[in-house]
């Protein structure tokens, strides 16, 4: 029985994933594909923000180092 449960579970996930995929797909193709441009801007923003977080954490490390040196 358990095997069937797994099969059903997996197929439900696959269907849901497919539905979500096609929803995203139809959104990105709607309104003259303007959401592709929105997505492009989002990718650039996320990339730059992740990089800024990396710089931030490096600076925090250095600040801690300076504090330790002072003591």
């Amino acid at each position: 029985m358990k095997k069937y449960h797994l099969t059903i579970f997996i197929s439900i996930i696959a269907i849901a994933q497919g539905a979500a995929q096609s929803m995203v797909d139809s959104l990105l193709r709607s309104d003259g594909k303007i959401y592709v441009v929105v997505g492009t801007l989002a990718i650039i923003l996320i990339g730059i923000i992740l990089f800024l977080i990396r710089i931030d954490s490096n600076l925090t490390k250095l600040e801690n180092q300076i504090k330790q040196n002072e003591h």
Binding site: G32, K33, V37
Partner: peptide, 8 residues
């Protein structure tokens, strides 16, 4: 085909 994505 390009439509609004020409803004990219």
């Amino acid at each position: 085909i390009l439509y609004e994505t020409i803004r990219n």
